[in-house]
Simulated scan of single mutants.
Amino acid sequence: MELYLQLTQFYQDYAAHVDRADWDAWIEMFTDDCTYSVQARENHERGLPMAALSLDGKGMLKDRIYGITETIFHDPYMQKHIVSAPRIISHSAELIEAQANYAVFRTKYDGIAQVFNVGRYIDRIRPTDEGLRFESRLCIFDNDMILNSLIYPI
């Protein structure tokens, strides 16, 4: 039960960091050699490697955040994540495999909220001395397409 509560808090912390644009805290949720991908369900199910976003290692996560905050021009918006309770697939002292469903809502400054992205997380999580860390986060989205473009992490 303790592991489940810790994992649930970890998932909710992730959503809070992204929703608040707390990018330093978001990056620290990953191992140095992590992978982070956002992929269409169809490609995932067919074993096709094409992803809307694919980052390898903390360096690429930091580069993406630099791009978001310093170089990419886009119509600003806020997002809110709704994340289901995690489902533990397997666990050991060294690795937790878990999944959860998510929905991301986007609100532009005109005040209109819309469903932006819906899908599931497939995660490999390492317990470390500093707490849980994503070794791998695969965001599989059900949408046929991403509205406009993918700027912020899912």
Rank of each mutant, 00 (worst) to 15 (best):
Q39N: 05
L7F: 08
T128H: 01
E135F: 13
L55M: 14
Y109N: 08
S54T: 04
V38F: 07
L61K: 05
L5I: 11
N43T: 00
M50Q: 10
L150A: 06
L7M: 08
G59A: 14
N101E: 01
A51P: 14
I27D: 00
H44V: 04
A98S: 15
A51S: 15
M60S: 12
R20E: 15
M29E: 11
V83W: 04
V115S: 08
I82E: 04
Y36G: 03
E28F: 03
L53V: 07
M78T: 10
Q39C: 06
V115A: 09
G57M: 02
H81I: 08
R87V: 13
Y14W: 07
A52V: 06
N43M: 06
L61Q: 10
A52H: 08
D63S: 08
N117W: 03
A52K: 10
I89V: 14
E42V: 05
T8R: 11
A16Q: 15
Y4P: 00
D32I: 02
A21R: 13
N43I: 02
A85M: 11
I140G: 01
E94S: 14
T31I: 09
I151C: 13
Y14M: 08
F10T: 07
Q9N: 14
L61T: 06
I72Y: 15
G47C: 08
Y4M: 07
H17E: 13
E97F: 03
I88C: 07
M60V: 03
M145L: 09
D56Q: 08
A93P: 06
Q12K: 12
D22Q: 07
L53C: 06
S92P: 01
F134D: 02
T35M: 12
R137K: 14
I140D: 01
L150Y: 05
V118A: 03
L55C: 10
E135M: 13
D144P: 01
